[in-house]
């Protein structure tokens, strides 16, 4: 709907960032109203509703819940595809484990958030060929690396130490996944912790809400309003 709203962060002057984020929510809301008034606009067929992650620690948990929904949804599709059906024993075990782990994460956040949980998101994985090993592994790599960078970037915004610990317990498992997937793609190489992710100080990249949700938006049908998240 409004990808132009989500400009790359580098284009936004630093001093204006908080202001931008505040304006962002208003603009997004306005766009939603406009669309409601345009029922005959066939560019937006059956658009699922806007999802507001909320604010504070609840908002961060909903952000994590959204990402876990995405990952769990992806592996559920992997299980149904012909790549998985024909995969070797090692890769079947790994994909089966990842499906279980991400489903466990998703269901945990759903129950933990209770009435504060966002709705179940709708996904479009049609760009991924689930019969093609390379395509499935490439997508898995994208999702796992994205999850790690998202948790690493969001940790600083949690105010509750117990929630921070829970996020920490999950992010290292996502990193274990990411390393394994990368090793399946390029076995026994150094890609498991590649220079594309890890800088000269040995620090893994972090991504902010906007970067993560923009990347995820390729696969998520719902428009996600993250404007109330801490900044």
């Amino acid at each position: 709907m409004n990808k132009e709203l989500f400009k790359p962060q580098g284009l936004i002057q630093k001093a204006d960032r908080r202001q931008f984020l505040k304006m962002g929510s208003l603009t997004v809301a306005g766009a939603g109203l406009l669309l409601m008034g345009c029922n005959d606009d066939d560019r937006m067929p059956s658009m699922p509703g806007m999802v507001n992650l909320g604010s504070g620690d609840v908002g961060i948990l909903n952000y994590a819940y959204a990402l876990e929904q995405l990952e769990a949804g992806f592996y559920a599709e992997v299980m149904k595809g012909s790549y998985f059906a024909n995969a070797n024993a090692e890769e079947k075990t790994i994909m089966g484990d990842l499906e279980k782990h991400e489903r466990a994460h998703r269901e945990f956040f759903k129950v933990a958030l209770g009435a504060n949980a966002i709705t179940e998101l709708e996904f479009d994985f049609s760009s991924i060929d689930f019969g093609n090993r390379n395509a499935v592994l490439a997508a898995a790599k994208t999702f796992e690396d994205l999850g790690v960078a998202a948790y690493n970037g969001a940790g600083q915004f949690l105010t509750n130490a117990d929630l921070l610990l829970i996020a920490g317990k999950i992010v290292s498992v996502e990193a274990r996944h990411a390393a394994a997937i990368r090793d399946l793609i390029n076995p026994n190489s150094v890609d498991f912790a590649g220079d594309d992710l890890i800088d000269a100080n040995g620090l893994e990249r972090t991504l902010n809400f906007q970067q993560v949700l923009t990347a995820a938006s390729t696969f998520v049908k719902n428009e996600i309003d993250f404007s109330q998240l801490p900044s």
Partner: peptide, 17 residues
């Protein structure tokens, strides 16, 4: 905190490998 998290996930990648 963010630096520690960014080291933590690198250690997890090492462990997995």
């Amino acid at each position: 905190l963010t630096a520690a998290l960014s080291i933590h996930s690198v250690e997890a990648r090492h462990a997995s490998m």
